[in-house]
Design a binder for these strands. Structure first.
Lengths: 145, 145
DNA sequence: CATAAGGTTAGACACAGTCCAACCCCTATC
DNA sequence: GATAGGGGTTGGACTGTGTCTAACCTTATG
Protein backbone atom coordinates (compact mmCIF):
# COMPACT_ATOMS: atom_id res chain seq x y z
CA UNK A 1 0.00 0.00 0.00
CA UNK A 2 1.38 3.33 -0.97
CA UNK A 3 -1.62 5.50 -0.39
CA UNK A 4 -4.83 4.33 1.18
CA UNK A 5 -7.71 6.22 -0.32
CA UNK A 6 -8.75 8.78 2.22
CA UNK A 7 -11.42 10.94 0.71
CA UNK A 8 -11.83 13.24 3.65
CA UNK A 9 -8.87 14.11 5.79
CA UNK A 10 -9.34 14.83 9.46
CA UNK A 11 -6.66 15.70 11.98
CA UNK A 12 -7.20 12.23 13.46
CA UNK A 13 -6.64 10.15 10.35
CA UNK A 14 -3.77 12.42 9.44
CA UNK A 15 -2.09 11.66 12.75
CA UNK A 16 -2.52 8.00 11.89
CA UNK A 17 -1.04 8.54 8.44
CA UNK A 18 1.99 10.21 9.99
CA UNK A 19 2.46 7.32 12.41
CA UNK A 20 2.38 4.73 9.63
CA UNK A 21 5.19 6.67 7.99
CA UNK A 22 7.22 6.64 11.19
CA UNK A 23 6.56 10.25 12.05
CA UNK A 24 5.66 11.33 15.55
CA UNK A 25 2.47 13.30 15.01
CA UNK A 26 2.92 16.52 16.87
CA UNK A 27 0.50 19.38 16.88
CA UNK A 28 2.46 21.40 14.31
CA UNK A 29 3.13 18.45 12.01
CA UNK A 30 -0.54 17.62 11.91
CA UNK A 31 -1.46 21.16 11.00
CA UNK A 32 1.14 21.30 8.24
CA UNK A 33 0.08 17.92 6.93
CA UNK A 34 -3.54 18.95 7.08
CA UNK A 35 -2.85 22.10 5.10
CA UNK A 36 -1.31 20.02 2.32
CA UNK A 37 -3.57 16.97 2.27
CA UNK A 38 -6.97 18.56 2.80
CA UNK A 39 -6.41 20.81 -0.16
CA UNK A 40 -5.06 18.88 -3.11
CA UNK A 41 -2.88 21.72 -4.17
CA UNK A 42 0.78 22.42 -4.72
CA UNK A 43 1.86 24.84 -2.04
CA UNK A 44 5.08 26.67 -1.33
CA UNK A 45 6.58 26.83 2.14
CA UNK A 46 5.43 30.38 2.74
CA UNK A 47 1.90 29.57 1.61
CA UNK A 48 1.81 26.66 4.02
CA UNK A 49 3.09 28.83 6.82
CA UNK A 50 0.42 31.43 6.10
CA UNK A 51 -2.33 28.80 6.13
CA UNK A 52 -1.12 27.14 9.31
CA UNK A 53 -0.80 30.41 11.16
CA UNK A 54 -4.33 31.61 10.49
CA UNK A 55 -5.71 28.92 12.77
CA UNK A 56 -4.70 27.70 16.21
CA UNK A 57 -1.21 28.28 17.47
CA UNK A 58 1.68 29.88 15.71
CA UNK A 59 4.18 27.74 13.89
CA UNK A 60 7.65 29.03 13.18
CA UNK A 61 9.39 29.16 9.86
CA UNK A 62 12.02 26.72 11.11
CA UNK A 63 9.36 24.17 12.00
CA UNK A 64 7.65 24.52 8.64
CA UNK A 65 10.89 23.78 6.82
CA UNK A 66 11.92 21.05 9.28
CA UNK A 67 8.56 19.37 8.85
CA UNK A 68 8.44 19.63 5.07
CA UNK A 69 11.91 18.14 4.83
CA UNK A 70 10.91 15.38 7.21
CA UNK A 71 7.84 14.63 5.12
CA UNK A 72 10.00 14.52 2.01
CA UNK A 73 12.47 12.15 3.63
CA UNK A 74 9.66 9.85 4.69
CA UNK A 75 8.17 10.00 1.19
CA UNK A 76 4.92 11.45 2.43
CA UNK A 77 5.05 14.28 -0.07
CA UNK A 78 7.05 15.25 -3.16
CA UNK A 79 8.96 18.30 -4.16
CA UNK A 80 8.18 20.00 -7.46
CA UNK A 81 10.92 22.17 -8.91
CA UNK A 82 9.54 24.33 -11.69
CA UNK A 83 10.03 27.86 -10.49
CA UNK A 84 13.56 29.05 -9.78
CA UNK A 85 12.38 31.20 -6.90
CA UNK A 86 10.52 28.65 -4.82
CA UNK A 87 9.86 24.97 -4.30
CA UNK A 88 6.34 23.56 -4.41
CA UNK A 89 5.31 20.69 -2.18
CA UNK A 90 3.00 18.11 -3.63
CA UNK A 91 0.79 15.90 -1.44
CA UNK A 92 0.22 13.55 -4.36
CA UNK A 93 2.87 10.83 -4.39
CA UNK A 94 1.22 8.74 -7.10
CA UNK A 95 3.10 8.79 -10.41
CA UNK A 96 2.12 11.91 -12.27
CA UNK A 97 3.56 14.82 -14.19
CA UNK A 98 2.93 18.53 -14.21
CA UNK A 99 1.68 21.36 -16.33
CA UNK A 100 2.94 24.76 -15.30
CA UNK A 101 1.20 27.95 -16.35
CA UNK A 102 3.98 30.48 -16.74
CA UNK A 103 1.51 33.34 -16.62
CA UNK A 104 -0.35 32.53 -13.44
CA UNK A 105 2.17 30.25 -11.75
CA UNK A 106 -0.56 27.62 -11.46
CA UNK A 107 0.59 24.02 -11.37
CA UNK A 108 -1.72 21.16 -12.38
CA UNK A 109 -1.32 17.40 -12.42
CA UNK A 110 -1.09 15.14 -15.44
CA UNK A 111 -1.94 11.53 -14.68
CA UNK A 112 0.98 9.29 -15.54
CA UNK A 113 -1.19 6.28 -16.28
CA UNK A 114 -1.90 7.35 -19.85
CA UNK A 115 1.57 8.64 -20.66
CA UNK A 116 4.22 6.52 -22.35
CA UNK A 117 7.79 7.63 -22.80
CA UNK A 118 9.96 5.56 -25.09
CA UNK A 119 13.45 5.86 -26.48
CA UNK A 120 15.18 6.97 -23.32
CA UNK A 121 18.81 5.91 -23.12
CA UNK A 122 19.85 3.19 -20.69
CA UNK A 123 21.30 4.51 -17.47
CA UNK A 124 25.04 4.46 -16.81
CA UNK A 125 25.78 1.26 -14.91
CA UNK A 126 25.64 1.62 -11.16
CA UNK A 127 22.99 4.28 -11.46
CA UNK A 128 19.35 3.97 -10.53
CA UNK A 129 16.46 6.25 -11.37
CA UNK A 130 15.12 8.14 -8.42
CA UNK A 131 12.34 9.84 -10.34
CA UNK A 132 11.37 11.08 -13.75
CA UNK A 133 9.74 14.46 -13.89
CA UNK A 134 7.94 15.91 -16.87
CA UNK A 135 6.96 19.55 -16.85
CA UNK A 136 4.98 21.11 -19.64
CA UNK A 137 5.31 24.85 -19.52
CA UNK A 138 2.33 26.61 -21.07
CA UNK A 139 1.08 30.15 -21.48
CA UNK A 140 -2.00 31.87 -22.85
CA UNK A 141 -1.61 32.08 -26.63
CA UNK A 142 -2.36 35.80 -26.66
CA UNK A 143 0.27 36.59 -24.06
CA UNK A 144 3.36 38.45 -25.15
CA UNK A 145 6.27 36.09 -24.68
CA UNK B 1 18.34 28.01 -39.24
CA UNK B 2 18.25 27.68 -35.51
CA UNK B 3 21.86 26.87 -34.86
CA UNK B 4 24.59 26.90 -37.44
CA UNK B 5 27.15 24.25 -36.64
CA UNK B 6 30.09 26.01 -35.15
CA UNK B 7 32.57 23.45 -34.02
CA UNK B 8 35.12 25.83 -32.61
CA UNK B 9 33.99 29.02 -30.97
CA UNK B 10 36.17 32.07 -31.10
CA UNK B 11 35.44 35.47 -29.66
CA UNK B 12 34.98 36.68 -33.24
CA UNK B 13 32.35 34.22 -34.40
CA UNK B 14 30.66 34.60 -31.04
CA UNK B 15 30.33 38.32 -31.58
CA UNK B 16 28.76 37.48 -34.93
CA UNK B 17 26.36 35.02 -33.28
CA UNK B 18 25.30 37.69 -30.81
CA UNK B 19 24.68 40.15 -33.63
CA UNK B 20 22.48 37.71 -35.54
CA UNK B 21 20.39 37.40 -32.41
CA UNK B 22 20.04 41.16 -32.15
CA UNK B 23 22.48 41.53 -29.29
CA UNK B 24 25.11 44.24 -29.24
CA UNK B 25 28.32 42.30 -28.67
CA UNK B 26 30.08 44.06 -25.85
CA UNK B 27 33.27 42.91 -24.23
CA UNK B 28 31.49 41.39 -21.23
CA UNK B 29 28.75 39.72 -23.25
CA UNK B 30 31.30 38.05 -25.47
CA UNK B 31 33.19 36.70 -22.47
CA UNK B 32 30.04 35.37 -20.87
CA UNK B 33 28.89 33.82 -24.12
CA UNK B 34 32.31 32.34 -24.67
CA UNK B 35 32.29 30.75 -21.23
CA UNK B 36 29.01 29.01 -22.05
CA UNK B 37 29.50 28.08 -25.69
CA UNK B 38 33.14 27.01 -25.71
CA UNK B 39 32.46 24.53 -22.95
CA UNK B 40 29.33 22.55 -23.70
CA UNK B 41 28.36 22.46 -20.06
CA UNK B 42 25.50 23.54 -17.89
CA UNK B 43 26.78 26.35 -15.72
CA UNK B 44 25.27 28.33 -12.90
CA UNK B 45 25.54 32.10 -12.72
CA UNK B 46 28.24 32.02 -10.06
CA UNK B 47 30.27 29.49 -12.03
CA UNK B 48 30.07 31.70 -15.09
CA UNK B 49 31.11 34.70 -13.06
CA UNK B 50 34.08 32.79 -11.68
CA UNK B 51 35.18 31.71 -15.17
CA UNK B 52 34.80 35.14 -16.68
CA UNK B 53 36.71 36.84 -13.91
CA UNK B 54 39.79 34.64 -14.12
CA UNK B 55 40.68 36.16 -17.48
CA UNK B 56 40.72 39.73 -18.75
CA UNK B 57 38.69 42.36 -17.04
CA UNK B 58 36.35 42.05 -14.14
CA UNK B 59 32.66 41.57 -14.75
CA UNK B 60 30.13 42.41 -12.09
CA UNK B 61 27.42 40.18 -10.73
CA UNK B 62 24.77 42.55 -12.08
CA UNK B 63 26.17 42.26 -15.60
CA UNK B 64 26.34 38.49 -15.42
CA UNK B 65 22.67 38.30 -14.51
CA UNK B 66 21.67 41.05 -16.96
CA UNK B 67 23.47 39.25 -19.74
CA UNK B 68 22.13 35.79 -18.94
CA UNK B 69 18.59 37.15 -18.85
CA UNK B 70 19.19 38.94 -22.12
CA UNK B 71 20.49 35.73 -23.70
CA UNK B 72 17.42 33.89 -22.42
CA UNK B 73 15.09 36.51 -23.84
CA UNK B 74 16.79 36.30 -27.21
CA UNK B 75 16.61 32.48 -27.09
CA UNK B 76 20.35 32.13 -27.29
CA UNK B 77 20.45 29.85 -24.27
CA UNK B 78 18.01 27.92 -22.09
CA UNK B 79 17.37 27.77 -18.41
CA UNK B 80 17.38 24.41 -16.65
CA UNK B 81 15.54 24.25 -13.36
CA UNK B 82 16.44 21.05 -11.54
CA UNK B 83 18.07 22.20 -8.34
CA UNK B 84 16.07 24.36 -5.96
CA UNK B 85 19.13 26.31 -4.95
CA UNK B 86 20.34 27.50 -8.34
CA UNK B 87 19.46 27.80 -12.00
CA UNK B 88 21.64 26.21 -14.68
CA UNK B 89 22.14 27.86 -18.04
CA UNK B 90 22.29 25.63 -21.07
CA UNK B 91 24.00 26.70 -24.29
CA UNK B 92 22.25 23.90 -26.17
CA UNK B 93 18.93 25.13 -27.56
CA UNK B 94 18.26 22.05 -29.68
CA UNK B 95 15.41 19.89 -28.33
CA UNK B 96 16.78 17.69 -25.60
CA UNK B 97 16.10 16.49 -22.08
CA UNK B 98 18.22 16.08 -18.98
CA UNK B 99 19.61 13.53 -16.61
CA UNK B 100 20.48 14.92 -13.20
CA UNK B 101 22.85 13.10 -10.87
CA UNK B 102 21.57 13.87 -7.40
CA UNK B 103 24.84 12.81 -5.82
CA UNK B 104 27.28 14.89 -7.85
CA UNK B 105 24.92 17.57 -9.16
CA UNK B 106 26.10 16.76 -12.69
CA UNK B 107 23.64 17.44 -15.47
CA UNK B 108 23.85 15.62 -18.81
CA UNK B 109 21.87 15.87 -22.02
CA UNK B 110 19.49 13.33 -23.48
CA UNK B 111 18.90 13.77 -27.19
CA UNK B 112 15.22 14.35 -27.89
CA UNK B 113 15.36 12.83 -31.36
CA UNK B 114 14.96 9.27 -30.09
CA UNK B 115 12.40 10.02 -27.39
CA UNK B 116 8.66 9.72 -27.95
CA UNK B 117 6.10 10.84 -25.43
CA UNK B 118 2.49 9.78 -26.03
CA UNK B 119 -0.75 10.06 -24.12
CA UNK B 120 -0.35 13.61 -22.94
CA UNK B 121 -3.65 15.40 -22.45
CA UNK B 122 -4.68 18.14 -24.86
CA UNK B 123 -3.99 21.61 -23.62
CA UNK B 124 -6.73 23.82 -22.25
CA UNK B 125 -7.94 25.98 -25.14
CA UNK B 126 -6.18 29.29 -25.50
CA UNK B 127 -3.00 27.78 -24.13
CA UNK B 128 0.17 27.02 -26.04
CA UNK B 129 3.14 24.94 -25.04
CA UNK B 130 6.24 26.94 -24.38
CA UNK B 131 8.44 23.94 -23.65
CA UNK B 132 8.38 20.40 -22.35
CA UNK B 133 11.10 19.47 -19.94
CA UNK B 134 11.97 15.96 -18.88
CA UNK B 135 14.35 15.44 -16.01
CA UNK B 136 15.50 12.00 -14.95
CA UNK B 137 16.91 12.13 -11.46
CA UNK B 138 19.45 9.40 -10.84
CA UNK B 139 21.83 8.36 -8.10
CA UNK B 140 24.50 5.74 -7.56
CA UNK B 141 22.75 2.49 -6.61
CA UNK B 142 24.95 2.03 -3.55
CA UNK B 143 24.24 5.50 -2.20
CA UNK B 144 22.13 5.81 0.92
CA UNK B 145 18.98 7.62 -0.11
C1' DC C 1 9.83 14.37 40.61
C1' DA C 2 14.25 14.17 37.81
C1' DT C 3 16.05 13.21 33.62
C1' DA C 4 16.64 12.78 28.83
C1' DA C 5 15.30 12.79 24.17
C1' DG C 6 12.80 14.81 20.85
C1' DG C 7 10.48 18.93 19.05
C1' DT C 8 9.93 23.88 18.57
C1' DT C 9 11.43 28.58 18.52
C1' DA C 10 13.44 33.33 17.45
C1' DG C 11 16.73 35.26 15.38
C1' DA C 12 21.02 35.29 13.03
C1' DC C 13 22.87 33.82 8.94
C1' DA C 14 23.95 32.31 3.92
C1' DC C 15 23.16 32.88 -0.62
C1' DA C 16 20.83 33.62 -5.27
C1' DG C 17 19.06 37.02 -7.68
C1' DT C 18 17.15 42.00 -8.34
C1' DC C 19 17.24 46.92 -8.13
C1' DC C 20 19.06 51.47 -8.40
C1' DA C 21 21.52 55.49 -9.10
C1' DA C 22 26.05 56.77 -10.58
C1' DC C 23 29.21 56.18 -13.86
C1' DC C 24 31.60 54.84 -18.20
C1' DC C 25 32.21 54.36 -23.00
C1' DC C 26 31.15 54.79 -27.71
C1' DT C 27 29.35 56.99 -31.41
C1' DA C 28 27.13 60.79 -33.82
C1' DT C 29 27.03 65.54 -34.58
C1' DC C 30 28.63 69.92 -35.11
C1' DG D 1 38.08 67.50 -30.89
C1' DA D 2 34.41 69.14 -27.75
C1' DT D 3 29.83 67.86 -26.54
C1' DA D 4 25.83 65.25 -25.86
C1' DG D 5 23.21 61.19 -25.47
C1' DG D 6 22.07 56.41 -25.11
C1' DG D 7 23.30 51.95 -24.13
C1' DG D 8 25.99 49.20 -20.99
C1' DT D 9 28.25 48.37 -16.65
C1' DT D 10 29.04 48.84 -11.78
C1' DG D 11 29.01 48.51 -6.54
C1' DG D 12 26.26 48.18 -3.11
C1' DA D 13 21.97 47.92 -0.98
C1' DC D 14 18.15 45.13 -0.87
C1' DT D 15 14.71 41.02 -1.05
C1' DG D 16 13.26 36.50 -0.39
C1' DT D 17 14.05 31.52 0.35
C1' DG D 18 15.91 28.39 3.06
C1' DT D 19 19.40 26.84 6.90
C1' DC D 20 21.60 26.91 11.37
C1' DT D 21 22.07 27.40 16.24
C1' DA D 22 21.46 27.60 20.90
C1' DA D 23 17.90 28.06 24.17
C1' DC D 24 13.68 26.51 25.51
C1' DC D 25 9.55 23.51 25.93
C1' DT D 26 7.15 18.96 26.22
C1' DT D 27 6.48 14.43 26.93
C1' DA D 28 7.61 9.74 28.24
C1' DT D 29 10.10 7.10 31.50
C1' DG D 30 12.36 5.60 35.79
Amino acid sequence: MTNMEITQYTRDNLAEKLRTHGINPTHQRIEIGFALFSRHEHLSADQIMAIVNTRHSETSKATVYNTLNLFLEKKLIREVIVDPSKVFYDPNTEPHYHMYDLESGRLTDIDAADVRVTGLPTLPSGMVTESMDIVIRVRPSDAAH
